[in-house]
Simulated assay, not measured.
Amino acid sequence: MFATPAYAQTAGAAAPGGDLLTMLPMLIGFIAIMYFFMIRPQQQQAKRHKAMLSAMKRNDTVVLSSGIVGKIVRVEEAEVMVEIATGVSVRVVKSMITEVRAKGEPAPANDKAA
């Protein structure tokens, strides 16, 4: 009706396997871009997080993945005891800690100094 059949041209066609040789550099380039923009930064971030968790010590202030801020009371191999309020301590898996703040790091004030 409105569409006419399309016929493939056989004259000047590449040899069998020729398409693979033209696609191979593009495929390698795509894999390299994916590695440098996605995989490598994620690996570096995981390495920094692991180093941060191994450097935790008692009396450090930590931020949990839920947003709770507390002070480390005890450090064990896979878990940490965090005091979130006076006399309230919770046991937390180390991997759920997103940030470790230094012991003497000042907290920002909510009011303006006059």
Rank of each mutant, 00 (worst) to 15 (best):
M1I: 06
T4R: 14
T4E: 15
P5M: 08
A6T: 13
A8L: 04
A8C: 10
Q9V: 06
T10E: 14
A11E: 10
G12I: 09
A14H: 11
A14R: 14
D19T: 09
L20M: 07
L20K: 09
L21P: 02
T22G: 11
M23A: 15
L24G: 02
P25D: 00
I28W: 09
G29A: 02
I31R: 05
I31Y: 09
A32I: 15
I33R: 01
I33T: 02
Y35A: 13
F36R: 05
F37T: 15
F37N: 08
F37L: 11
M38S: 12
R40T: 08
Q42Y: 13
Q44Y: 02
A46F: 04
K47I: 02
R48T: 14
K50T: 08
K50M: 10
A51S: 15
M52S: 03
L53E: 12
L53M: 10
N59P: 03
D60M: 12
T61Q: 12
T61F: 04
T61Y: 00
V62R: 00
V62K: 00
V62N: 00
V63Y: 10
L64I: 07
S65H: 08
S65R: 14
S65Y: 12
V69T: 14
G70C: 01
G70E: 03
K71G: 01
R74T: 07
R74A: 08
R74L: 11
E77V: 11
V80E: 00
M81Q: 13
V82A: 01
V82N: 00
E83S: 05
I84D: 06
I84M: 13
I84S: 11
G87R: 05
V88P: 08
V88S: 14
S89N: 09
V92S: 01
S95G: 15
S95M: 12
M96C: 09
M96E: 12
E99Y: 07
A102R: 06
K103M: 05
E105C: 03
A107I: 04
A107V: 13
P108R: 04
P108V: 01
N110D: 10
N110H: 15
D111N: 05
K112M: 10
A113F: 11
